[in-house]
Computed example of a mutant assay.
Amino acid sequence: MRIGAHVSVAGGVDNAVTRQLDVGGNCGQIFTHSPQVWQEPNIDEEKASTFREGTANDLDGPWVIHASYLVNLATPKPDLREKSIESMQQEVDAAEQLGVEYVNVHLGAHTGAGVEAGLDNAASALDELDVPDGVTVLVESDAGSGTKLGGDFAELAAVLERSDQDLGVCLDTAHAFAAGYDLSSRAAVETAMEAFADTVGLDALACVHLNDSKHEHGTHKDEHAHLGEGEIGDEGIEAIVTHEALRDLPFVLETPTEDGRSYAWNVDRARTLRAE
């Protein structure tokens, strides 16, 4: 099972490998810098080399770089669009430097421009990127609150269809659940995956953000819970990690640190549910 967590790069990107091993992970996700600011990754090549070597020697992979929270591909605002494209270009270049396979990004919000215009904006912004060989941009499913796009699988499919880039999809289980796709039982997971297959296509699915949800499905509230202890629950998480279309994908945790438990507990829980 490829399972890991979103870990910190504090003190140098090479520290992410040790932190991943510390929580029992064998793949994972990082930010290259604080996701709350516009900032270049500026990765030291020596630390990048150590990161690459540590990954090759100690992990199964892959790694995913998560784009800045400030990036809004769907925006109608020219200045924000320009900053978003520039930030994404820096992330895909950093991915090439680190030997990271995926860069994950939310489509963002159309902020009143309308769904179709927002989808066009997102696709055309992605087309502005010079994505290095060996790097794939993944668009992430969203909880769909407000004017944010990506909650409906059809919106993910539309961007993949409209973009000239060879894009993939990251399915966030808590986001999909919040957006209205029930994942709380084996039958519900099967129905949701059939919808994904029919709308997006399973070939596009490259990664799963494995998170439980603190809120009921369809609420559009994005708040993650420990695996099996949220509204998705043990049955739903077990169905996800054992589903034929998902089981061989990398699972990345973004679960909370609370109640004396963090990533290590959730990595163990995922493996336990997989084995049951």
Rank of each mutant, 00 (worst) to 15 (best):
R2C: 05
H6D: 01
G11D: 04
G12N: 01
V13S: 02
G25M: 05
Q36H: 15
Q39L: 07
E40G: 08
P41Q: 02
G54W: 08
N57Y: 01
A67T: 11
L70N: 03
V71Q: 12
V71S: 07
A74D: 06
R81Q: 09
S84P: 11
Q90S: 09
Q97V: 00
E101N: 00
G112C: 12
A117C: 01
G118Q: 06
A123G: 02
D130H: 15
V137P: 13
V137H: 12
L149A: 11
G150N: 04
D152F: 05
F153Y: 11
R162C: 09
D164I: 04
L167C: 15
V169G: 08
C170T: 13
T173F: 04
G180D: 02
D182I: 02
S184L: 00
S185E: 02
A197K: 15
L202H: 10
L205E: 13
H215S: 07
E216D: 13
G218P: 12
T219W: 06
K221A: 10
K221V: 11
H224N: 07
G230T: 02
G230V: 01
E231Q: 05
D234N: 06
G236F: 00
E238W: 08
H243Y: 14
E244P: 11
T255L: 04
P256A: 01
D259T: 10
D268K: 09
A270K: 03
